[in-house]
Design a binder for these strands. Structure first.
Lengths: 114, 114
DNA sequence: CATCCTGCGCAACCGATGGTTGCGTATGTG
DNA sequence: CACATACGCAACCATCGGTTGCGCAGGATG
């Protein structure tokens, strides 16, 4: 089984800037688009686009408040994303271990032949 | 701490096709570029480019053999990537739990006020 | 040896995307 | 009212994943 993960979710958290946006939201609670851009090396516009993407996959939720727009993490969806991350991680972990075992076996066999 | 992960490594495994290439290499041992493209919905050229990227970050190693070029996984580097994956996963896991705790606390406090 | 086939690399091109700048607009604040 | 600020929209650019179309080198086969 090829670990049928949700490519949309994955690619949402695949972008480094987006990961940092999520980090900031996780660390400092909800924030406006411009506030977040202050702490990032990119423009407000870029952050806004990223928030749009994150909103579209449901990782984040927008709340208009006067002339500002607050964003907060959707914990449930975020938990799902983290779960997929961990799933891939452990799958690859397992395969790595198996490969190492096989490599060992081959090595031993060839040493016996010598 | 913003989980200073290696963006190059991450974005290398961030691409879905690249993840599948790695999956194939993990499952079937080393393979040529064209053989891999047979099992993927993309062209040999695309696979070749991906293998180039993976090679550049050291996740994969090329071995010319006659008119073919075999690619095999670099287990050490791959292990590092997996480790980073898991690290981010558990970091986010921890933050999620903390946020949920805080949310609970706030909820309780507001209920006391009512 | 001549020929053919196959696996690869290089180059041009295309669409999506992360990023920028610039502008218009709406909401607060002196 | 006038000014500042937070936002959205649009145009534009570079990069990247992907394709097609070559040309070339390395083996098989007559």
């Amino acid at each position: 089984m090829t670990a049928a993960i949700d490519d949309d979710l994955w690619s949402a958290i695949g972008d480094p800037t987006r990961r940092r946006v999520l980090d900031l939201l996780l660390a400092g609670g909800p924030g406006t688009a411009t506030a977040l851009s202050d702490e990032l090396p990119v423009t407000r516009q870029a952050v806004a686009k990223h928030l749009g993407v994150l909103d579209r996959v449901g990782l984040v939720h927008a709340t208009p408040a006067g002339r500002e727009t607050h964003y907060r993490i959707d914990e449930a969806q975020f938990a799902r994303a983290v779960a997929q991350l961990n799933a891939v991680g452990s799958t690859w972990d397992a395969r790595l271990r198996r490969i190492k075992q096989i490599a060992e076996a081959i090595k031993n066999a060839s040493e016996e032949k010598n």
